[in-house]
Design a protein around this nucleic acid. Sequence first.
DNA 1: TAGATTGTTAATCGATTAACAATC
DNA 2: TAGATTGTTAATCGATTAACAATC
Lengths: 211, 211
Amino acid sequence: MSKNDSISMSVIRRLPRYYRFLCELNDQNVERISSTKLAQIMNTTASQVRQDLNCFGGFGQQGYGYSVAQLRDEIKKILGLNNRYKAVLIGAGNFGSAIANHLDFERLGFELVACFDSDKEKLGIKLGELTISDDSQLEEFCGENRVDAAILCIPKGNVESVLQRLYDLGIRNYWNFSHYDITAKYSDVVVENVHLSDSLMTLCYRMNNKE
Amino acid sequence: MSKNDSISMSVIRRLPRYYRFLCELNDQNVERISSTKLAQIMNTTASQVRQDLNCFGGFGQQGYGYSVAQLRDEIKKILGLNNRYKAVLIGAGNFGSAIANHLDFERLGFELVACFDSDKEKLGIKLGELTISDDSQLEEFCGENRVDAAILCIPKGNVESVLQRLYDLGIRNYWNFSHYDITAKYSDVVVENVHLSDSLMTLCYRMNNKE
DNA sequence: TAGATTGTTAATCGATTAACAATC
DNA sequence: TAGATTGTTAATCGATTAACAATC
């Protein structure tokens, strides 16, 4: 049993944040940091920092602290950011295009390898290095290329049918911007949901309920 | 002391999800639902549903369940979605434009009233009903119009200076897509962060650590 | 009335924080 | 060695789940 079995989601969701802060410290040429100082910067507790890191191994040195560059690399490895998981973008509307252009996939463990849309008017348009393909070419592309994950940037109503095809093509990992409930339908998949409207509603609640 | 004091964030973040499912049930003409059934649909427990709802009041009826339409309206009210909070968009790049076009702000308690960008080339371009204004007009606009919140769709490096101006203009609510740590600088603000790259890294971790 | 299902209290579980011995 | 800070165990806190009396 490797040490990183059964890490709780609470811990996992904090890892990217550690990674970001460590990258930044490293850019500022900070070489060494204690859990106390890191906790200060990240607005958390030293206990939590040490507990979190010790889920994956002892990266520090007593009396000394943590090496920023080393810890950053360890977390990068834990997150798997050295991978180049092949992802296809489904839906090249406003939102899908923004995602494709805006994010540095390679730094995040991914590579965007294709992009599909059902709108014939979009066919052939460039999206960064990619060209928008017709939705109907999905099967052919996935037959000829390894595809690890799909990014769903289509409205909820359109998800069911495309998802069926993606699932049949063997794709089991999804970054889902729609409100379609993927895990309700397929239980053996990894789904990371981003619900922007939920986030905005939460902001609304908090504004509406200030003290 | 009103009942909705000190509701935990765990509960608050579930409210939008309840709202979405209830809207859907209502669209399907379901009139009444028990906590058990709602829990099934939402993949949670009946206990949690009842606990969550009872933070805000007793909306159900013993032996009967909950009226879908009534419960939906109650949650809408709790979330404050009947508001029309005035929001300005800062940054009309790929991402900001997608947000402006893609989201139905009015359904989410907001109204997008202006949009600013420092790129002179974008000046005057239409974004839905809005026209992109020059960044320098921010003060003038906020002087003449009520502005409740700002949506930050600019890179981290550009945030500090704009944020200072927004704060000085009295804006205390932020929907933040950048990696700038707003609360570290200003403690009396409401910040709702959306960190897309954190979400993608989490997906990477989960793919990298399957069983 | 009998059946169903809530509202709410109590029990459990998990996550966070505190404490401290180990050790660099 | 003395000081600092980790790794880890124990204590606390909060969130989830279970149970059941109240009641429609």
